[in-house]
Amino acid sequence: MAKKQGIVNINHNRCKVCGICVSVCPVQNYKIEHRKLREFGKCIACLQCERYCPDMALIIDTKNDEKTPTG
């Protein structure tokens, strides 16, 4: 099981619910529910969603976890 390493900040004012992050996430952390983006706390801080989000709505904070290197 993937270890939780990232904290997802969704800026709902900017999010247009395009769903790119839902598809791009390798651990299926996102889901669209009632036309709103939801995340499930499974983030591994790969930053793929932060990078591909066209609306600058996602910011991923990386947790300090000394056991697993993050980047």
């Binding site: 004012n13 769903g19 066209p54 600058m56």
Partner: peptide, 22 residues
Amino acid sequence: YLKQELLPTQWCPGCGNGIILK
């Protein structure tokens, strides 16, 4: 480098323009 108060952009959901802006 962006005027962040103007966000969100008026582009459609999923538009690539935002990625290129970034």
